[in-house]
């Protein structure tokens, strides 16, 4: 079998924030009734975190659960574990109306970190990123310029962002442009 490589092979850029492509990450789409105990157990059992609230995500290291829609979750696991995690969830959900698909190779993940991280994303996405409206653990699907993305806040000055693999280069270019030195706005209070 060939060696898998991520969309941008770990490319990074240092501007007013640091933008890194995070390499291979395990991402699994789980569709099903969030109220179903079987769906809850399958997701939390594989991810090892609590079931997320709406518009939130719960992550520890490379593992986590993100609330994608009223009937969809994104399950995050280390890349090498994704196929096993899919099999485990499918076994647990046998007989439950659901869908589990390994989408790891269809996506790219970035980390945007630094005191201006809110500002860089706010330039690209129509989302209220003020400290009072968006904080660590908040998750949002939206668009960055012309393409769909989703992001969540990991810490006070760091975000993770996912997009389709086919537009990873476009998204990286967008982030680099928004993070270019000289483009600081300083709208959000420093460190907030």
């Amino acid at each position: 079998m060939s060696d898998p490589v991520s969309a941008l092979n770990g490319a990074a850029y240092d501007g007013v924030v640091r933008v890194e492509e995070l390499g291979l990450r395990g991402m699994i789409t789980l569709r099903g009734d969030h109220a179903s105990v079987a769906v809850k157990n399958a997701a939390t059992g594989v991810a090892g975190v609590d079931f997320p609230d709406a518009l939130a995500c719960d992550t520890v290291g490379e593992r986590g659960l993100a609330w994608m829609s009223p009937d969809e979750l994104l399950v995050l696991v280390p890349y090498a574990e994704a196929d096993r995690a899919v099999a485990a969830m499918q076994a647990e959900l046998a007989g439950t109306h659901s869908l589990v698909v390994n989408v790891s190779d269809a996506r790219a993940m970035f980390r945007i970190s630094g005191p201006a991280a809110r500002e860089v994303l706010a330039k690209l996405c129509p989302v209220d990123l003020s400290p009072g409206a968006f904080g660590p653990g908040d998750f949002r699907r939206t668009r960055a310029a012309q393409v769909p993305v989703a992001f969540w806040m990991q810490a006070d000055d760091a975000f993770a962002l996912i997009c389709f693999r086919s537009v990873a280069g476009y998204v990286f270019d967008l982030l680099k442009t928004a993070a270019r030195p000289g483009g600081e706005i300083g709208y959000f209070p420093a460190g907030a």
């Binding site: 709406a54 518009l55 829609s69 009223p70 129509p126 989302v127 209220d128 699907r141 939206t142 668009r143």
Partner: peptide
């Protein structure tokens, strides 16, 4: 009303 997000026209 499905997810609670305040969506801009360009997301709709």
């Amino acid at each position: 009303p499905c997810c609670g997000a305040e969506a801009d026209e360009t997301e709709l």
